[in-house]
Design a protein around this nucleic acid. Structure first.
Lengths: 123, 123
DNA sequence: CGACTTCGATTACGCGTGTAAACATTGAAT
DNA sequence: ATTCAATGTTTACACGCGTAATCGAAGTCG
């Protein structure tokens, strides 16, 4: 089953550092999202049920950690968007951002370097 | 309110060609999605409520057409993904696809051309 | 040992979604 | 006019989501 948007926010916290307690997660995400304890606990439980995180007992409480790697999640999401909106091809996506003037100088420089590297590795 | 996934499928049909009747839409999307009449009608009504499509009477029936431009939808969705997963920067997104070997030769060629054009227009 | 605190688990509830059946309306045919 | 067929409108229903309150178990302190 898919990871929802609110759940993904919890995942991001865990991907940044884990394992962590629920209290710890709440401290990081609660104020920012306006969530309270019960909300975070529920989300953690749903993520457990979805096997996206695992929990390891630590005395009275649990420490949570991702089971789903971020890379995999990013891949799924990105591929989904690419397929739905750009016929599965990357160039049109970049062209879209280019037209929207969403390419920073830094982006352009990095893209150039990336293409350069692709050249080098395939002689 | 956001356009849901099922709704987006209807929108794609309308973006390809419009205005079109519900029957017409059903013919194109029904078999492929396994949807039947009521489903398509419901989705159209929700899209109307969301102001994403408009309907113009044509005799006994309506002809539907997008009100939300595809370009705008694509922008929202793309920006959402970019912000959520890649810190809002395009280069990391492309790097991701590159690592996943999702860049076709054609993509690479087009990207190169795109960068070239960016060079040209900002002398 | 009994009350209090601390966690996690269970339950709740309104809302959107996917999917469709039932109902209503209206033009067409008899 | 009456009835039939075609369309759109309303209602339905289960399920996931966002958000929490409540329940329950398990240490902790007096």
């Amino acid at each position: 089953m898919a990871i929802s948007e609110a759940e993904a926010i919890i995942m991001e916290v865990l991907w940044r550092a884990s394992p962590r307690s629920a209290e710890d997660i709440l401290a990081e995400v609660g104020p920012q999202q306006g969530w309270q304890e019960g909300t975070v606990k529920s989300l953690l439980n749903r993520l457990l049920k979805k096997k996206a995180v695992k929990a390891e007992r630590d005395g009275r409480r649990y420490l949570y950690a991702p089971r789903l790697p971020r890379e995999q999640y990013v891949s799924q999401e990105s591929k989904g968007l690419l397929d739905r909106l750009f016929g599965g091809r990357v160039a049109p996506l970049v062209a879209h951002f280019s037209e929207q003037r969403k390419l920073s100088k830094k982006d352009i420089a990095e893209l150039r370097k990336l293409l350069q590297e692709l050249d080098d590795e395939q002689p």
